[in-house]
Design a protein around this nucleic acid. Sequence first.
DNA 1: CTGAAAGCGCTAACAA
DNA 2: TTGTTAGCGCTTTCAG
Lengths: 341, 341
Amino acid sequence: MAAVSIAQVAELAGVSTATVSRALSGNPNVSDATRQAVHEAADQLGYVVSSNASSLASGRTRNVGVITPFLDRWYFTQVLEGAQITLLEAGYDTTLYNVSGGTELREQVFEHALKRQRVDGLIAVAVEPNERELARFHSIGRPVIGVGGKVAGIPSLALDDVAISQLGAAHLTALGHRRIGYIGGGPDYDTDFHLPVQRYEGFVRAMHEAGIAVDPRLALGADFTIEGGYDAAKQLLGQPVHLRPTAIFAASDEMAIGAMMAARDLGLSIPNDVSIAGIDDFTQSAFFGLTTVAQYPHDQGILAARNLLSWLETGNEPSAVTTQPHRLIVRSSTARPVPEL
Amino acid sequence: MAAVSIAQVAELAGVSTATVSRALSGNPNVSDATRQAVHEAADQLGYVVSSNASSLASGRTRNVGVITPFLDRWYFTQVLEGAQITLLEAGYDTTLYNVSGGTELREQVFEHALKRQRVDGLIAVAVEPNERELARFHSIGRPVIGVGGKVAGIPSLALDDVAISQLGAAHLTALGHRRIGYIGGGPDYDTDFHLPVQRYEGFVRAMHEAGIAVDPRLALGADFTIEGGYDAAKQLLGQPVHLRPTAIFAASDEMAIGAMMAARDLGLSIPNDVSIAGIDDFTQSAFFGLTTVAQYPHDQGILAARNLLSWLETGNEPSAVTTQPHRLIVRSSTARPVPEL
DNA sequence: CTGAAAGCGCTAACAA
DNA sequence: TTGTTAGCGCTTTCAG
């Protein structure tokens, strides 16, 4: 019940509490013999330091906050898991701040995490702090790392979404497709990091590079879900053959998979009648044979945690923006277009 | 920037620190005038209590730990999100302990969360503590609530997995199916809570109740993924017509969706050639028109958090086991079997 | 290398 | 209703 205190360990080991503290925290100024005696006493009593007392005295919590707008989406859970495991291995706890609720909840998070001094640092996943929030970060003086987009003023791990999208679309143009549908939303579906806008931009660039004019009627908005992709693809693929795109590029794999379902339901075969590609390489993409531009959010989580830990431990702020890798993975959903007869 | 301390607020408000503490924590023994003055002073200075100091002095952390073996699976993120939101609304933080790593990581979690006194209580999602861990729970004297299965010695929110499975399978027998395939794994795929075994048991009961002998060749193991369901369904549905099941019941919607894909790939139409049903009602089930027995993990998370909060605040331990609701949702993937000619 | 002692910032008796 | 005071359990100077 009453937790074992440092004093009890000190008594059993026959040293002062200060020495126990030093021995257990790995302070080099302790003789081996003493250190061992302390460890033995601690083990015997089952002593573990009280994090609150330790934090209060030292100013370090060994706890990191992760702020994210979603928990039930692939990207976010991947990042979260990578970060959490890395932190736990380093002896840090992870406190979760889910800000799906919007601004006032965000405020509350800042109160909790930062001002209450619950955390040593913060990882913001796809959350773009506003000016006030940024100012708060700095005024509190705690490290913050962004993931999922560039944030002015804080070191972040970002994707080059334009390049990613351009690569995926260029794969289709390189195969010889010229009438390419795009599913992904424009400004209407914009998020903190303008991901939809950037991915659309990449698509446009690939088209221009291939000397193809973008037909705005073939670019449809959608909400990044399977269902949204399905509905949009039905519109694109339901048209008569000479208007129908020979390929569809979707700004996310979930929408691409929805598009694949739509193609099937319309009796079109993939990739003979229509090629489909996406972005992400999420859990089910390999199963569906979807060609995609992969990103690696789990690794992003790991890296974010590592950067934060090193910042905390060395005091050196990581470089401003680190662009994360992506890779084209060609599977069975894309092929050359069948020449029209 | 040194954080604002309670002493500064006290000075500005012209009262003692004790009064500030009382006023801010909602202690009734404070005059309205004083309370208001304190709040004004606190707002003006931007004061927020230091959680460490508060925890150390009061013994309460206002932090709850959530232990879960997975982060990237529907059920777990649903529970987590429900719990996290509920806790945040109540002013509690949520610290995440992901124990996918296995036993030694679990040990570490117990060290961190419990012994370091980081949390006031714990929510264990689909984690069955072993005897040592249970003993530790009790010895630490912190409330723990289980979700996802009954845990002897811990109040838990459980599903009646046998009943759920029986209901789903009975839907198929009631439609007139007699040759029903089962995908879900037996003991080989068993988890902490024997979910596969229980769901298989429910299937068997429904069959017996309908007077149908279970054909073991039609019961296949799978790993609860879409892909696993796909592979298993291919085996079942690839057989000649007179041996082929007219319906498939899968122990999870993901496997059921895999089975739907397999049926399509084999050129079988759903539900004419084969009916398919699952369990869960996960994100994509409605989109695929999958008949399923729904459960509500988000609500389970909310309820777990509420129960824990009330336990923390009133000291009354919730009842041992609360069985959570489920419901049959009939969609377009099931129908009467077409009579053989 | 080790110990004594002064806090870290707050809460909770206890008095008044 | 409010103030005084004694810790909560640890870390960290400062001496030695």
